[in-house]
Amino acid sequence: MKAVVVGTSYGGMEAIRNLLMNLPGDFDLPIIIVLHIGSNTINSYISQLHHKTNRKVKEAREKEPIRRNTVYFAPPNYHLQIESDFTFSLSTDPKINYSRPSIDVLFETAAWAFKDKLIGVLLTGSNNDGAAGLQTIKKFGGITIVENPETAFAKTMPSSAIELFEPDFVLDIKNMAEKMAELGK
């Protein structure tokens, strides 16, 4: 595996924190995240997460090469894309499903770049962004994991994916971290 992409909206801050804190310290795959956060800045959340998890956490910059041992967030108000040379690019295209950054955009372009070396994770959220993108990841041979809607803070986002196709795993956060650790070996 080469990378993990994660999408989430309502309840996402908490869910991401949980997921990262449950991952073993030697989990070194790059983790690339779209969190719907409106037009607010994400800086304070990023530094908080860095202190809590002891991981390198940052906003993704355009043209930046994707590195191991790093957690990246899409900058608010820009779509985050992955290029085939494993660098980031940004776009100010119109909102998709009322969202910018859009989870679908990250997932789809990540699937094109990483193909079957990608893990896609869709967490809590109150809209259906990410479901189509996660399905694309599966079609390109990647592994797809969806948070268990029963235990998720908001179930619409994970449920939309499960309605659209059959993800490889439906798990609550703790088991998800274990599964990722196993896949990341």
Binding site: Q81, E83, S89, S91, D93, E108, T109, W112, A113
Partner: peptide, 8 residues
Amino acid sequence: YSKAHLKR
């Protein structure tokens, strides 16, 4: 131009 964007 950015290929990922063009492809979309």
